[in-house]
Design a protein around this nucleic acid. Structure first.
Lengths: 365, 365
DNA sequence: TTGTAGGCGTTATCAA
DNA sequence: TTGATAACGCCTACAA
């Protein structure tokens, strides 16, 4: 990597950087006047203001320091976004991206920045949360035992939790995961499926891949997954399926590859399933790749369902539940940025729609 | 939207929020001691520290205020990212996403947050830049006349510019756009193409769609586009192509639809082209959709090329130039966060690779 | 229209 | 090991 220390054209670096006070002294006016020149131009004669600005340019004064201003006004002009994953990871999940897009939309109109706060799942270092200069937080899909989340809550700032977990005293945005999952179960039951398998996303902070027993399903720290599994179980049990015989496989990673691995694990546990339920579209699409490798046709040999309704899944005509991910982001932003924000504990539950595609059909024979 | 003002379980709101000073007074120690309890635990007897923390919990003191700390230490613990588009837009561009991913990777390891600073193309309101509490900025693909960019430069903070524009005194990360574009031209020339059309991205801040004359090509405020067009021109002119006969169509939006419209416009200007060059993969993929609608086969009837090497394009086996978008983000982050940062005006030029796919072939006849 | 002065909450420095 | 003091740079009543 070439590195040319080129000619500096930055202004005289000798003098200490100009401040509002030094600028005021320079032109022989008060600090108030300089402050007003920036924040209340109408409180000033145009000539005086021009003089101030001219001097500012001359001395290289970049305008009032945002940090000092924040300290004084008690406003940061930014909101923090807490993501469960290493930041770079979130950008790989289409549903998370849609959420982010919705949130930024609201931040744009409210004229506030969005601070991405890293929250590595393995790390208990919450300094990123503690040191974030923000007016509030949005927590996106965090497990209920995540220290970063609790660090957010202890900051005593406005907070909106999206998807999970359900905590008293903060605003919530989400969907009815259990009901939506149950619809999937009923759809498959109605088609005639009784022998199924499930691939779900991570249920806790620790890396773990493989079969999940009922206890772990019910104790999952990711409420979304817990509720989706509960919904599936309710739907299938109602149709007489013995849930303890249903292979449920957890995948820590959220990727096509993980979906493929999950499908393989499920098939190893019961090669005779007629339907494979995934708790996300990404996992479902990965599962379909695995089935293709095994020359199993979808839906003739095995039906497959997803969850989320991401673009790629809809293009594939995957049977899935469509949820308004972008709208979730918007609602989270609105709740947080709502100027008349007084009541806490508001809940926004967004609608979902079971969307049958071409990946589900009656079981063979 | 249901909205339940539920039971507040927030602690006593009567008292004014605790501060380091009030906490110190409460337990009868100095502020220094409390500060040390948080920042230099080893400078304290364990018992005293325990007493401090206990009192903090009791009074609901959330720890040192990040803004006040920033003011004192002159460190914000965050970097700002300036994007040319409404934030929500950037999340639709795979190359921008890859860049973002690379940048966040570096921010993660450096333990700093990333502040997304909105910079609407139409707006001249640079208050978002002026009020960003950050230690430095990364400007991603901004036009050279953008007021937000100049606001960044006048903040006198470390700044790294990615892709464009080339400005003395700041660090730069990019690729050799002209050379890469010229390779595309030479590839097509070698195949035998002499009658071509071009769809390019926006060349200025104002919305504009349609044919672009040479003057506008050479005055484009987006350096990347300017250099790519210059590279194409150089390559084709060298082969005897009369550039002023080549239809070049600008598209303000960056989407598949825009690519389709651009292709349509080019074909309207010269239905006899044998190759269509797009200055981004997204535009190229949109153009292919338009060609498909017209029952023009690629590459039999028309060859198509892109630029960027995004995943979807490579899956389609589009002939394109692959550039290391994620690596650009990393390099930008490194340059900015480099602790030994003294020299300005460093330049990092990353390699590109012309990657022939299945969308280019010799012209028919 | 302009100026005075106090304080926002913290940390660095130096002394005890 | 602990404490006193002085900034950090700004905003905003209030007064002139």
């Amino acid at each position: 990597m070439p590195s040319y220390p080129l000619l500096m054209d930055s202004p005289p670096r000798s003098r200490p950087p100009a401040t509002l006070a030094s600028l005021a002294a320079e032109i022989g006016v008060s600090r108030t006047t300089v402050s007003n020149a920036y924040n209340r131009p109408d409180q000033l004669s145009p000539q005086l203001r021009a003089r101030v600005m001219e001097a500012a340019a001359r001395l290289g004064y970049p305008g009032p320091d945002p940090v000092a201003r924040s300290l004084r006004t008690r406003k940061a002009g930014a909101v923090g976004l807490l993501l469960t994953e290493q930041l770079s990871y979130a950008f790989r999940d289409p549903a998370a991206l849609a959420f982010l897009e919705g949130l930024t939309l609201e931040c744009d109109t409210a004229r506030v920045g969005l601070l991405l706060v890293p929250a590595r799942p393995g790390s208990d270092d919450v300094s990123g949360v503690a040191s974030a200069a923000v007016d509030g937080f949005v927590a996106y899909s965090m497990p209920d035992d995540d220290p970063h989340l609790h660090a957010v809550l202890s900051r005593r700032l406005p907070a909106v939790i999206c998807d999970q977990p359900a905590l008293r005293g903060t605003d919530l945005v989400g969907i009815d995961d259990a009901a939506a999952a149950r619809e999937i179960a009923e759809h498959l039951v109605q088609l005639g499926h009784r022998r199924i398998g499930v691939v779900c996303m991570r249920l806790g902070r620790a890396r773990r891949d493989g079969p999940v027993d009922l206890a772990r399903q019910q104790q999952a720290h990711y409420h979304v997954q817990r509720h989706r599994l509960a919904g599936l179980r309710a739907g299938f049990v109602a149709a007489g399926v013995a849930w303890d015989r249903v292979p449920v496989v957890e995948q820590f990673d959220h990727s096509l590859e993980a979906g493929a691995r999950g499908a393989a694990a499920v098939l190893a546990m019961d090669p005779g399933i007629t339907a494979l339920v995934a708790t996300s579209d990404v996992l479902a699409m990965g599962a379909m790749q695995e089935l293709a490798r095994r020359r199993q046709r979808v839906p003739e040999d095995v039906s497959v369902t997803g969850f989320d309704g991401v673009r790629a899944a809809l293009d594939l005509e995957l049977t899935t539940v469509v949820q308004p991910s972008l709208e979730k982001g918007r609602q989270a932003g609105r709740l947080l940025l709502d100027p008349g924000r007084t009541a806490r504990g508001r809940r926004v539950v967004l609608p979902t729609a079971l969307t049958p595609g071409r990946t589900t059909a009656p079981p063979r024979i």
